[in-house]
């Protein structure tokens, strides 16, 4: 028999967790959503229901274009992170032996650094008189600084990839590292050549970790506005930057909220879709 005080204690914690979710997540989201249905009148907010903000998003090409381009950019960032991060996680989990956690820690350390500092650091590497250009010049390979990777989409992609890379490596490493050694041995035992063992056993079992990392990177790249602000120049602006400017500069909060709601909506759809596909793939 459960004691009444036990019930009381359990219910108290349940109530507290519900209160936290309601006050810290649901209410802000609701107010956010409701803002997206208001309009601005000069510097005042007109609190009447209207779909104008959403209409504007679909009418003015620039928003949809930027949105599509930003999704594409986030996909490129995610794919690059996967291509670079997966091999690292794989070799770390399978071949780094007793040093693997030390190396992993070194990969995690950049996460403790300020995000802004990392972007400035990237600027000083990619810039006109940055490290890359200086080295190339010294080697006599170029005469004047390359502009390929500054103040455009490329620089945004490179910076995001470098900043977000640990987010792919960590969950992928964790899921690969958890695979028991004898499961891999069993695959060899049943006739797998090394590549087949990877294709049929290691990759599928480690896949969920890759998906988690991929979603992290995709969502963060999709909503990011600081990177395009600091290294993107004029051609490198993204959907996140448009949202930011509506709140920070244009003072059009309702329109910013509408744009952000659309982003949230699309993100949730993408996450659910990935979850669904992963489950289907597993069955």
């Amino acid at each position: 028999m459960k004691l009444i005080s036990d019930y009381f204690r359990t219910s108290i914690w349940t109530v507290i967790s519900f209160i936290l979710v309601i006050f810290l997540i649901l209410i802000p989201l609701a107010s956010f959503l409701s803002y997206s249905f208001f309009t601005v009148d000069g510097l005042d907010i007109n609190h009447e229901f209207s779909l104008d903000n959403y209409k504007e998003f679909f009418i003015d090409e620039i928003y949809i274009n930027t949105f599509v381009r930003t999704i594409f950019l986030a996909l490129v960032v995610m794919s690059s992170c996967i291509l670079l991060g997966y091999p690292v996680a794989y070799f770390l989990a399978r071949y780094a032996g007793r040093y693997k956690y030390v190396i992993l820690l070194m990969l995690i350390i950049p996460l403790f650094m300020s995000y802004i500092i990392k972007i400035y650091m990237m600027r000083s590497i990619l810039g006109y008189s940055g490290l890359i250009n200086k080295v190339l010049k010294m080697m006599g390979l170029i005469e004047k600084p390359l502009e390929f990777f500054l103040w455009n989409q490329n620089s945004v992609i490179i910076t995001l990839v470098i900043i977000l890379l640990p987010l792919i490596i960590i969950p992928t490493f964790t899921s690969l590292d958890k695979i028991p050694k004898n499961i891999i041995e069993a695959s060899f035992d049943l006739g797998c050549k090394p590549f087949q063992a990877f294709r049929y056993v290691i990759f599928p079992i480690g896949f969920p970790g890759l998906v988690v990392g991929g979603i992290f990177v995709f969502i963060l790249a999709l909503g990011d506005f600081v990177t395009p602000q600091l290294v993107g120049g004029t051609s490198g602006f993204t959907y996140g930057k448009i949202i930011y400017s509506n709140f920070g500069m244009a003072f059009n909060w309702p329109f910013g909220a509408a744009l952000a709601s659309i982003l949230l909506f699309v993100s949730v759809i993408i996450i659910s879709l990935t979850n669904y596909l992963t489950k289907k793939l597993k069955a």
Partner: peptide, 20 residues
């Protein structure tokens, strides 16, 4: 001769079934 070419199969102590 590498593992995958040997005409032997192993039953492992903790089964080592493929969880996927």
């Amino acid at each position: 001769i590498p593992i995958f070419k040997r005409p032997f199969n192993t039953v492992f102590q903790d089964y080592a079934l493929f969880p996927n």
